[in-house]
Design a protein around this nucleic acid. Structure first.
Lengths: 196, 196
DNA sequence: TTGTTTACATACATACTGTTTGTATGCTAA
DNA sequence: TTAGCATACAAACAGTATGTATGTAAACAA
């Protein structure tokens, strides 16, 4: 029965992929491990060999998703070297990524509920929120928004983006709605300039 | 065994109260109905007589919490008749209410995860978000933020407030942190004035 | 007063997660 | 090269939770 090391990592990969699809489609609570392992052509024994629990499996899935999103955000933002433009592009990329079905529920809805807000926040801090915070920090060092503590500003914008993405995802996905939303975000961020 | 009508509504009241405490302390998933009914001195039969499911019980608990918060927000906001001041007071009251332990998890974390984002959003729309939206609508009619679609602005601010409240709740609750946060919120909202 | 409905309790079915144990096979050191 | 061990799983089992079907005594309506 035993598989080679290469086969084992492949098993884990498949498991993570299938699990992500099931968590996305049914939500964590309604995603039965049994269904997941059936689709991955293993048994629940395999899961509990590689992961301590269903929650742990979810944690790894979430972490992968967060890394993906953060990478996209960073890549987009780095295409400019104007601070404001970087912020704009980053926020835009984040919303576009969070809107996608394979990210949305896992990242923004189940994440905090399943792992607890503190754990989720800690993970988020290491990924997408980290980028936002760093960017805002740099901007503050250049004299922006002196009146607002960095923490509060970061969380406010982050929360605003999250909610906006969730709302946008539930709109009939006409592309012009997405465009208008992005323009509105631009305008909002533009407003922060006045804090200089 | 049968109780009078008055006793029955009392049973429901107790059930809702105990359930709210358990949902608050352990989260929806880890709050066993069995523990809830034991503390309420009934059996699970009573629950399934008055509610269709555990989820339905949670829905009613959530609705009560939302109503409470919305009432507080409205009451606070109505103490002024300056539009900006109303917005400030309302946001402030919302954050203060959402920070409280008995509201936080139910309102902001488990709500969307358990009932699904769409259902939760619909309920929220009828309560706290409704107030925010109306206020912003009135302000727009007075010429504020013409560049931003009302929907986007409402969701962005609402999400920002939610996340800010969650963050604030997890800070060591020094009162000056709360005060500073509130001042920062003031500054943020102040920034929106420039959209006029 | 009697028939009916209500407000539960109780027993049971069902569905998951998680644990234990077993086992075939890859890997490694002598 | 092979003996011995570790690994990657499978399979059966145990525990816990929700939800359902049924029973029953009291309240209420007639």
């Amino acid at each position: 029965m035993r598989r080679s090391k290469a086969e084992a990592t492949e098993t884990v990969r498949t498991l993570l992929e299938v699990a992500r699809a099931h968590f996305t489609e049914h939500g964590y609570a309604n995603a039965a491990l049994e269904s997941i392992v059936q689709e991955a052509n293993v048994t629940r024994g395999a899961v509990y060999h590689h992961f301590r629990s269903k929650k742990e499996l979810f944690r790894v899935v979430l972490e992968n998703a967060q890394r993906e999103v953060a990478d996209r955000v960073e890549r987009e933002a780095s295409t400019s070297d104007d601070l404001w433009q970087q912020l704009r592009l980053g926020c835009r990329a984040f919303v576009m990524a969070a809107v996608e079905e394979r990210n949305r529920r896992i990242l923004l809805i189940d994440g905090p509920a399943i792992l607890g807000w503190e754990t989720w926040r800690e993970m988020d801090r290491a990924h997408s929120m980290r980028l936002l915070r760093e960017q805002l920090g740099t901007m503050r060092d250049h004299g922006f928004f002196p009146a607002i503590p960095l923490e509060v500003l970061t969380h406010f914008i982050s929360g605003g983006l999250n909610e906006t993405a969730l709302w946008l995802a539930n709109q009939a996905l006409q592309p012009n709605v997405a465009d208008e939303t992005m323009k509105a975000l631009d305008a909002l961020l533009e407003g922060f300039k006045h804090f200089r």
